[in-house]
Write a protein that binds this DNA or RNA. Structure first.
Length: 398
DNA sequence: CGTCCTTTGAAGTCT
DNA sequence: AGACTTCAAAGGACG
């Protein structure tokens, strides 16, 4: 069970959450996020070219060059260790908005008043918490979580609808507009402490990507912003909390994932065929800072690079993540922290363990094999070069 | 259809 | 306590 906030229950975040980056002047010196476009993109492109030529993908490149990865990661660790204090300082000082009403008062919608600069980059200094992707997911828990943009991009509604809806409290919004508890009936003893800061009141200031994003992305965003309330996947069907409350963390059973009760106290049932359709949803883990970041930035990267392969994109995102400024990362850590907190409050009995075994992963043997060269846990995140398919091999990384 | 790839972080389990 | 394992998202690739 998630530890209940050390530090007054508000701090679920690991004390070492913030990670380092750029201590050692690697070339990715603190790229303010928006700097990515030029150089990183160039890298990416060239990588793609190389890939097509059989020399490797960006992903492969990194994989092929663990050192490069390391270069980025070590500093991170370093930072991680020194961060705690910085975090406090940094976050509270430089981004007061995060602690005041502006940014988080509307946590559920996490307004991003201007998350993206005209050039398509995030505004590093925006104290409005540029973190949020136009929240398709209206859920307070996952402000950044669109839970699949696809779900929101098929609608035919007009993009600007949302703002209105939001102000008018939308069709689906419960009578009370300021508290999550109202919207998400919480388990007993649950969300008592959820503060108004997590309410619905914030108006959506979804930034219409006035630029930066290419069509696909911006449209997706606007669509998402527009329909989150109507077409949120969870609202379309099975993604309901057992209480009947839609929640992004709850995923409809797709037949792929085994079902389990969100409350592990409940005993698993034999699952008669009848229930097949009425299967209970799986409650997913709350997203961590990086996942939130990926959610937000993926579309952007895809648009910029016309890349689609998630593995490659994730590598890029990983690099960009490290290139983020401390402040920017802090925003995501803070968001993640709140997510965890909220998740915990919403599902007091839930444990990450509940989902263990639902996803088949590489076998342990396999792990150990790659383990010999892998750098990261047994998952072989950093594989040996030899493990990289020939066509993905070398090319200079960075 | 199911799993892998790839990333980081959180949290679980194991030693 | 520290190391290791699993899952979270995503979508193309592959068996």
């Amino acid at each position: 069970m998630p530890q209940l906030g050390s530090g007054g229950g508000d701090d679920l975040g690991a004390t070492d959450e913030m990670l380092a980056f750029k201590d050692e002047g690697e070339q990715e010196e603190k790229i303010p996020e928006n700097a990515f476009t030029e150089r990183d993109l160039a890298d990416l492109k060239s990588s793609l070219v190389n890939e097509s030529e059989g020399s490797g993908s960006p992903a492969a490149a990194a994989a092929a060059d663990p050192e490069a990865v390391r270069r980025v990661q070590d500093p991170q660790r370093a930072y991680q260790e020194k961060l705690p204090e910085h975090m406090d300082d940094g976050m509270k000082h430089q981004d007061p908005g995060m602690y005041k009403g502006s940014a988080y008062s509307g946590y559920p919608f996490l307004m991003l008043s201007d998350p993206y600069l005209p050039n398509g980059s995030m505004s590093p200094l925006s104290n409005k918490v540029p973190v949020v992707q136009p929240s398709h997911g209206v859920h307070p828990l996952t402000p950044l979580i669109p839970y699949s943009n696809d779900h929101f991009s098929h609608g035919s509604h007009s993009p600007h609808l949302p703002a209105d809806i939001n102000q008018k409290q939308g069709v689906h919004r419960p009578s009370q507009t300021s508290d999550i508890p109202g919207f998400y009936p919480l388990p007993p003893g649950g969300v008592g402490q959820i503060t108004p800061s997590m309410g619905w009141q914030s108006q959506s200031v979804y930034p219409l990507p006035s630029c930066g994003f290419r069509q696909p992305y911006s449209s997706a965003l606007s669509a998402g912003a527009s329909f989150s309330r109507f077409t949120h996947p969870l609202m379309l069907g099975s993604g309901m909390h057992t209480t009947g409350i839609p929640h992004p963390a709850i995923v409809p059973h797709s037949g792929k994932q085994e079902m389990e009760h969100y409350d592990r106290n409940m005993k698993p049932q034999p699952e008669p065929k009848r229930e097949k359709e009425a299967k209970k949803p799986t409650i997913k883990k709350p997203l961590n800072a990086f996942m939130l970041y990926m959610k937000e930035m993926r579309a952007k990267v895809i648009a910029e690079c016309t890349l689609k392969e998630s593995a490659a994109i994730n590598q890029i995102l990983g690099r960009r993540w490290h290139a983020l400024s401390r402040e920017e990362q802090a925003k995501y850590y803070e968001l993640a922290r709140k997510e965890r907190q909220l998740h915990m409050q919403l599902y007091p009995g839930w444990s990450a363990r509940d989902n263990y075994g639902k996803k088949k992963r590489r076998t342990r043997e396999k792990q150990q094999d790659s383990n010999s060269g892998g750098k990261r846990s047994a998952f072989g995140t950093y594989k040996e070069k030899d493990a990289v398919p020939a066509q993905f091999l070398p090319m200079e990384v960075l």
